[in-house]
Design a protein around this nucleic acid. Structure first.
Lengths: 149, 149
DNA sequence: CATTTCCGTTGTACTATACAACTGAATATC
DNA sequence: GATATTCAGTTGTATAGTACAACGGAAATG
């Protein structure tokens, strides 16, 4: 194996290991830091908000979740008063999901507290390094959803 | 807010969002690609292997898992014949965990298949970008285990 | 129409996880 | 040296998140 491709392999191994380590820790850390709005709910709620309303099937597709999982998660969010289901007049099979005011607020609060945590954690980084890291992550995630990790 | 710190905030948001997206997908993708050795078991087994034997408490600390969780995971790995527990003669409280031959093999196989997936996914990247990305991930993960995401 | 396909719910089961209570072993304190 | 404390691991119990399968109603397609 050439020297260059040797280096590539090493980098790949590091990326694999570190991303996996991150994934392994993400949930517990999120649960600890934001008990009021669990990671999964947060993620779904954020997506609903960004899309300005969407269907359960969209969430399932986007996050590779079973529709039953999404259905229950939405149920939980509804019980918390964070989302509302609006029947679509044009197609009675569809429910359009929208964040309630409480949902929007909770989302903003969680987003702010997460941002603060990241700001602290990455406080030593230069703006250039942050921008580079963000760019790499975007590129990585865009590279095909089905291949990780 | 200054222009520079505006940029910082944007990068932080991207990093937060992309890492979260990754974490959300990691489990299902791993389960799909490697049904024979689940993500958690794989991770623990890999750590045991890299450390050339370690204690359950080390695993718990490193992955921020409860010791009961580790205990059960190790139990599962043992039942699969992938790890052995060796009592430490110097301290009878301690069990040194070691991969069995079967464990080492399964680990190698899974590692190879993951590496192949990564190689394909990141095939377009230059060696330099891979190295940079790996560096950032290492730095990120080293920056304090308790703050993410 | 009849069939198929789509959207969502519900029943059931499994995995990963945490917390608490416990056992046994080593260390510290008096 | 006896007692108390701390440490390593197990087990009981509970919970969250998830998948798969079976279903119901609604729409699209033949």
């Amino acid at each position: 194996m050439s020297d260059a491709s040797q280096k590539r392999e090493e980098s790949l191994d590091v990326i694999q290991r570190e991303l996996t380590a991150f994934a392994r820790r993400a949930r517990s850390a999120a649960a600890r830091l934001h008990p009021e709005l669990p990671l999964v709910s947060y993620t779904l709620l954020a997506h609903i908000d960004e899309q300005h309303g969407c269907r359960a099937a969209d969430l399932a597709a986007h996050y590779m979740l079973d529709k039953s999982t999404v259905s229950r998660q939405i149920g939980a969010l509804e019980k918390l008063g964070m989302v509302e289901r609006h029947p679509d007049p044009a197609d009675h099979r569809i429910q359009v999901l929208r964040p309630t005011q409480a949902g929007t607020q909770a989302l903003a609060a969680t987003k702010a507290s997460r941002r603060a945590a990241y700001r602290e954690r990455l406080g030593e980084w230069t703006a250039h390094d942050l921008a580079q890291f963000a760019r790499y992550l975007l590129r990585y995630n865009a590279a095909g959803d089905a291949t990780a990790p």
